[in-house]
Write a protein that binds this DNA or RNA. Structure first.
Lengths: 162, 162
DNA sequence: TCATCCAGTTGCAAAATACAAGCGGTTCAA
DNA sequence: TTGAACCGCTTGTATTTTGCAACTGGATGA
């Protein structure tokens, strides 16, 4: 159970928790897509994640303290997955992944809209997004600025044009 | 050969290239440890990477344009691996991984010294490091500031104390 | 000439991933 | 009250990736 760690390097330890093909995809969907239940994550995932992989990743992310699971009052079988503060603090990392992906891969134009906005917004926007996530996931007071709304508007405008 | 992509999302595309347990470890060693040959990478890797995994990752990183391989004039069997501009631009991503790892894992104190300095230095220091990497890997003119030297000095000081 | 170095490759076992089907409890409408 | 649909998974199986150890064939140096 107490998994051996390969080394004490912070990059390595981050990789040991998040260095696979799916963990950050799940976090991305919870974070940017506000998908909060298993079924929502499974049905609306862009990359077609398999149900057993999703179940495994959710378990691992909860176990390692990046997410929490709480019962959904509207449906006894459902759970609501929320980001913890540690999960929310992945925003800058994901933003850098957006930046690198935009510059060095060939992302689809429509899916690039939100990423471009997030990268252009820089650390100020990332901090505002983190505040908003603390509101949505941790019950913090609602911030004035809504990055979600800014991004939604930009996406809608781009989708209309294309 | 033309591998199917799961989606056009820039985060996903980044993950498809770098989302495994070893690719970024190899890049870290080339980037921060200035390990430039197969043998150097294999013998001095902190995490004990296996020889076949290293060979595979070097091939993939070269194939995907993050590194180049050139012959070593001093030894006909050896090659020198260098970062490309795309590889160098992973500096901010790795810096964010350092930041998250420092805050949310339990890295070893000694290995945290360099990471802490890099995180504290912020984007200015990352840019200086990138300039230095362009000098070391791409033949750009030598910059005045040497982040390598700053980091080396901090590490030596910490190692002496501990 | 011969031991050593060097950059990998090969064979095999174990683990992770992918895909499809199934399962028991819950909800809801008739 | 009953049955269909929904829900969050689990199970079984095939494929792929990883990890480990041993090995190889050429290059180098004494």
């Amino acid at each position: 159970m107490a998994q051996e760690r390969r080394s004490g390097c912070p990059i390595n330890l981050t990789l040991e928790q998040l260095g696979d093909r799916w963990s950050l995809i799940v976090i991305r969907d919870v974070m940017f897509g506000n998908r909060r239940s298993y079924g929502d994550l499974l049905a609306n995932n862009e990359e077609g994640i398999a149900s057993n992989i999703l179940a495994d990743r959710l378990k691992r992310l909860v176990a390692s303290g990046l997410m929490t699971r709480s019962p959904d009052p509207s449906h006894r079988q459902k759970s609501i997955y929320s980001l913890t503060e540690a999960g929310i603090q992945l925003v800058p990392l994901l933003a850098q992944m957006c930046a690198w992906g935009l510059a060095h891969t060939h992302p689809s134009p429509l899916l690039s809209v939100r990423a471009t906005l997030l990268v252009a917004g820089g650390p100020d926007m990332w901090e505002a997004l983190m505040q908003e996530l603390r509101y949505l996931h941790l019950g913090a007071p609602r911030p004035e600025r809504s990055v979600f709304e800014e991004v939604r508007a930009a996406y809608a405008a781009a989708a209309k044009v294309s």
